[in-house]
């Protein structure tokens, strides 16, 4: 596929929204890939963590539909090892927030497995809802 890069998009609303929510400079990422190399959830993700950032750097909001932010466990390994100090967990959360603002909840309280409600530490449920509920 070919995309006509819109110069306005490079300074446009999508980048500004991510940067406002995450307080991160997307351009600091040089796509070294270390985040993806160490991410424990890449096996399930459709896009690698560094692949999520690249279209965003170009102002393309296609990544909002990716499953990757919802598979992020916020383990913070990416941020710990990024040579440029990019706080990728915050960018992932910004993408989650944007996806929720544009669409539906990803975690619904009523759908939580009753076994979890009975036995799991409640911080798991509260944490999941805070991340995934509109």
């Amino acid at each position: 596929m070919r995309v006509v890069l819109d110069p306005l998009a490079l300074h446009g609303a999508f980048i500004r929204e991510i940067e406002a929510i995450s307080e991160q400079n997307l351009l600091a990422c040089n796509q070294c890939g270390r985040c993806s190399a160490g991410c424990p959830l890449v096996e399930e993700m459709d896009l690698l963590p560094n692949q999520i950032i690249r279209p965003a750097q170009l102002g393309l909001d296609t990544v909002v539909d990716s499953t990757s932010p919802w598979l992020c466990a916020a383990c913070l390994m990416c941020e710990a090892r990024c040579p440029k100090g990019v706080d990728l967990p915050r960018i992932m959360d910004a993408l989650r927030q944007i996806a929720l603002r544009r669409g539906e909840s990803r975690v619904v309280a009523g759908d939580v497995d009753p076994a979890l409600l009975a036995g799991a530490p409640q911080m798991a449920i509260v944490g999941a809802l805070r991340r995934g509920e509109k």
Binding site: C32, G33, R34, A37, C39, L48, Q51, M77, P83
Partner: peptide, 28 residues
């Protein structure tokens, strides 16, 4: 392979290198 290695550790006498090849979009 294009990508910065995240971690290297030892297992069963071999060294496990957790890396990535961004060009093929694969963690390796």
């Amino acid at each position: 392979l294009r990508g910065k290695v995240s971690r290297i550790y030892s297992q069963d006498g071999r060294l496990i290198v957790k890396g990535v090849d961004t060009l093929s979009h694969r963690a390796v």
